[in-house]
Design a protein around this nucleic acid. Structure first.
Length: 213
DNA sequence: CGCCAGGGCCATA
DNA sequence: TATGGCCATGGC
């Protein structure tokens, strides 16, 4: 069993296509993906949708608007997604960051992964989600579901985010489109079949793995 | 009512 | 390097 066998098995069962849930038309598409990537940090997507709707109702749907917005106004809008003070701050900081590139197009073309990671509130998973789903870069997203599924399948249990990412990027040689599809399938599968319990029994790290994933 | 959700930051050892 | 506390709302 290799990484692409798992991909085809997941595709056979779930048949997902072109995934990143976008339910609104008011946001510029790429920016809504970025906002969603920040809002979904350790949060159920249902609550993220409520927060996105709140931002729409407040007219805060662009880097321009958010970079100039009152922080309390942003907090009020994103409250349903939890961690609302942090997330309001992160949305505003990232909006200013985009504006510093002069235009979203320039940001999209020239921003590096390291620059994304330098922003407060942007960790490796959020950075890779932005790169892959909003900017079209070939960057594999590692989330809690990815680790949970692959350790339970008996794959090696890596220590750090970058080790997980290196494992996938060296074994999955296809383009960004397949990276998106693969991650989408992992999330869909995990939501349906891989809850936190039962714990991972096959992971070589035993209880450590069970606690984290 | 308790568990969980598509993390990340920071202090500590 | 890694572990623990913290952030917080809402679905089930």
């Amino acid at each position: 069993m290799d990484t692409m066998s798992v991909y085809h098995a997941l595709l056979e069962h779930h048949k997902t296509k072109g995934w990143w849930p976008i339910d609104h038309d008011f946001f510029p598409r790429e920016f809504e993906i970025i906002a969603g990537a920040i809002l979904t940090q350790n949060t159920n997507w249902i609550n993220v949708e409520k927060a996105l709707k709140g931002l729409e109702d407040a007219g805060l749907t662009s880097p321009e608007a958010l970079s100039n917005a009152n922080i309390k106004e942003i907090e009020k809008s994103v409250r349903p997604s939890g961690f609302f003070r942090q997330k309001a701050q992160r949305l505003k900081i990232f909006s200013v960051f985009i504006m510093d590139f002069g235009s979203f197009e320039n940001f999209s073309e020239s921003v590096t992964r390291e620059e994304l990671l330098s922003q407060k509130g942007i960790g490796p998973e959020t950075a890779d989600s932005i790169l892959l789903y909003a900017l079209g870069r070939r960057s594999f997203v590692i989330d809690a579901y990815t680790k949970r599924i692959f350790t339970r399948l008996g794959f090696q249990c890596f220590r750090t985010y970058d080790e997980w990412r290196e494992f996938f990027e060296s074994n999955v040689t296809e383009d960004a489109g397949l990276y998106r599809e693969y991650h989408a399938l992992i999330v869909e599968h995990a939501k349906a079949h891989c809850r936190v319990k039962p714990i991972c029994e096959k992971c070589p790290l035993g209880s450590v793995c069970a606690r984290k994933f």
